[in-house]
Design a protein around this nucleic acid. Structure first.
Lengths: 196, 196
DNA sequence: CTTTTTCTTGACTTGATAGTCAATAATAAC
DNA sequence: GTTATTATTGACTATCAAGTCAAGAAAAAG
């Protein structure tokens, strides 16, 4: 009955995510988005309420994709140590030459915690990631590979924090070697003595 | 010969720093600055070339003050462990109720590493902080208090990263307990076995 | 082929904000 | 007191970006 949409909404969302990730919310103009998506302004406005709405949807998409990756990783049939090693391997985070850090962390930094919706996304991500990490760490502890001096929960928060820091280093322009070194140290220190 | 300035430049700079720290560069309007400093627009423009110049000077001021604090701490006549404990004590970072994180980290996040001048400030800060941390850690290692499994340089980068992560958590709205727990875990894991 | 519906397009509006200008005020040197 | 110099002030300008509007285009249904 009606004229069908000519552009792929999901594709446009992914492209917008890339832009927001690289430039942040404030620095991204709507023109940047129309340019990246090759979709005209009004067409985007038809689907997404406004720039902020598009941003929030991109943020949620990012979270879902990250979590999906981590969950897939967690469910693999390999030793918990190997899982942690992959998670602590910086090269897995780094795509392209752009040092854009973690989109979620960048957004948390940009908005602070006074923006309810962004804050909600960030918390959600935090919780989910820590939960997955904790499960892997618990496995590692049960197998005597990870130190028992701290609880799995403490270590999960610890590791998550180390990764956040690393993403910050990335954003701040640190070299791959520096970042990898830090993650490796953080990883090593949480191992049981006999597993080092 | 001429009419003297009525406002204290240094005081205005400090006040501007507060605003930039809380809101970031982009989100701070010049009006915010005139309001915070109670100095009229043109008077600020007389002293500082523009908003960006004022921002960069605030950033440098922040770095100097942080470094001064850490250096004072490093030179105290207490055990290296005590020094590290103070540095890892989140309550020392936290002022007011505002969760504004580390101004340097926030700025690094906001600008990415494509802005040369901001990047320079951030790198400078990084290097200086790590250098101070390394010195304390080396002391700790010599006294058998800090693990020798990693070099002092590695551990300094590690600790700096953990602190960055913690400031990010702060910005992202984590509770004091959560932040303290993470820092405490990071601190504990770098201790020698007998010092735990 | 006509009608209906929704997409597309570019021009337009509105609002915010960085930075400028020119008139005025205040002070120190002479 | 006069003059020269610089600070102060508020109005002004220019720019840019988000969001709106209305006309036109395209497709599906009958």
């Amino acid at each position: 009955m009606s004229r069908p949409r000519e552009f792929d909404v999901d594709r446009a969302l992914h492209q917008s995510l890339e832009v927001f990730w690289t430039k942040g919310f404030k620095s991204t103009t709507f023109e940047d988005l129309t340019h990246a998506t090759q979709v005209k302004k009004q067409s985007l406005y038809c689907v997404f309420k406004n720039k902020r709405d598009l941003f929030l949807k991109a943020l949620a998409l990012y979270r879902e994709e990250r979590i999906a990756f981590l969950e897939e990783m967690a469910s693999r049939e390999v030793s918990p140590l190997e899982k942690l090693e992959v998670i602590c391997d910086y090269s897995q985070y780094q795509n392209k030459e752009t040092c854009r850090g973690c989109f979620m962390a960048n957004s948390a930094m940009e908005f602070g915690n006074d923006d309810q919706e962004v804050y909600h996304e960030v918390s959600l991500m935090f919780e989910r990631v820590e939960c997955i990490l904790e499960k892997i760490i618990r496995e590692g502890q049960e197998q005597g590979l990870v130190t028992n001096c701290q609880s799995s929960k403490e270590l999960a928060a610890y590791l998550n924090n180390a990764i956040s820091g690393a993403r910050y280093m990335e954003r701040a322009g640190a070299s791959n070697e520096q970042i990898n070194a830090v993650l490796h140290t953080s990883f090593t220190l949480m191992l049981a003595k006999n597993a080092r």
